[in-house]
């Protein structure tokens, strides 16, 4: 990685700090608007007012909101993420179990979505002006009208229920023992420890949820790639290459695609962030034990300590993916490299 890329990364990290502070304050304040009392709801019937007061004090809910926020933030910075009211476990435990699952899922979804999108975009471009392009163009409109969570349900209907060829519940087949945690990422751990049965089962369980996420991304990539290819193809250097007798498909892959990739890369940056949002319902539908499932459970049970941290983690993920894509963009764009 070049020095400029490192500088950019450093700038993005510096910029992320104030954004995350604002985000955490915002989430904290929004959640304190809550009309119900989550602590009171978590008490068994027959608890006294004294029990409630004690528990509220234990969770720090008896102080003013700015005070609560500063205390929470201070603890967060020292690595104390607080305890869940509903799960009765440290939030850090819950998040560190769920986060790798979601990252693996989004990674597969991104890879699959970009692959489908690039293939589709190239096909649209190759068929430009012909009926095939119109069909694909209308196809993208259709694909974009169905959100990820509905794809999840449709995929289950087709490949889980009608043709039962793929599993659609959880992350592993029941009965398989987990490999010893090395990295925390199931796919990596099972590959490192040569547990191919676990690796295969985990991958099979991820096919449908990753496909649901990928179908949300692919049509956007297709459209952006097609239109930037259309622009690039009119440049002089393409005509030059043609005059030199370079075959059309070599021009497309070697010259046009390289330059047309830039808008697609920035699109992936934005959409990659949104994909983390898409995982929420997809994970819930596939009972996939990731951040999304944790978030939905926490929301349903008004588990504020969990919601706060999970919300913040999502923002960190979005900012991280944006920063990574910015660096890739910089490295892929020779015009910016010497800026």
């Amino acid at each position: 990685m070049s020095r400029i890329a490192l500088q950019l990364l450093f700038r993005r990290v510096l910029l992320a700090i104030p954004i995350l502070l604002c985000v955490s304050a915002l989430v904290f304040v929004i959640l304190r608007l809550l009309p119900a009392d989550p602590v009171a709801m978590s008490l068994p019937p027959g608890a006294t007012a004294e029990d409630l007061a004690k528990l509220r004090q234990a969770f720090g809910l008896d102080r003013s909101i700015p005070e609560q926020y500063l205390i929470w933030l201070g603890k967060l910075l020292t690595g104390d993420f607080g305890g869940s009211i509903y799960f009765r476990r440290p939030v850090l435990d819950l998040v560190s179990k769920a986060l790798p699952a979601t990252i693996e899922l989004v990674f597969l979804g991104l890879v699959l979505g970009v692959a489908l999108g690039v293939a589709g975009g190239l096909a649209m471009f190759a068929w430009r002006g012909r009926a095939g392009e119109q069909v694909l163009d209308l196809g993208t409109s259709g694909l974009m009208a169905i959100p990820e969570f509905l794809w999840a349900i449709l995929l289950i209907l087709v490949f889980g229920v009608a043709l039962p060829i793929l599993p659609f519940i959880g992350r592993l087949s029941p009965g398989l023992s987990l490999p010893p945690p090395v990295t925390g990422f199931l796919l990596l751990d099972s590959a490192i420890t040569l547990r191919l049965d676990v690796l295969g089962s985990a991958l099979r369980h991820m096919v449908l949820p990753a496909t649901a996420l990928a179908i949300g991304l692919a049509p956007l990539v297709m459209r952006v790639l097609r239109s930037s290819l259309m622009e690039v193809i009119q440049e002089d250097y393409i005509t030059q290459a043609r005059l030199r007798g370079i075959p059309e498909h070599t021009i497309l892959v070697r010259h046009a695609l390289k330059n047309a990739a830039l808008p697609t890369i920035s699109l992936i940056g934005v959409q990659g962030g949104f994909m983390f949002g898409g995982t929420v319902l997809v994970e819930m539908i596939f009972a996939f034990p990731g951040m999304g499932n944790l978030m939905v459970d926490a929301v349903r049970n008004h588990d504020l300590p969990v919601i706060q941290v999970v919300g913040l983690v999502y923002c960190v993920l979005v900012l991280a993916i944006n920063a990574v894509v910015d660096v890739v963009y910089l490295m892929a764009n020779p015009k910016l490299r010497t800026a």
Partner: peptide, 20 residues
């Protein structure tokens, strides 16, 4: 910028927890 740091679904869920 701050708003864009949230995936929309997450922000919607958080808002609905706060507002009911």
């Amino acid at each position: 910028d701050i708003w864009m740091a949230f995936p929309p679904v997450i922000l919607a869920l958080i808002l609905l927890v706060g507002m009911g």
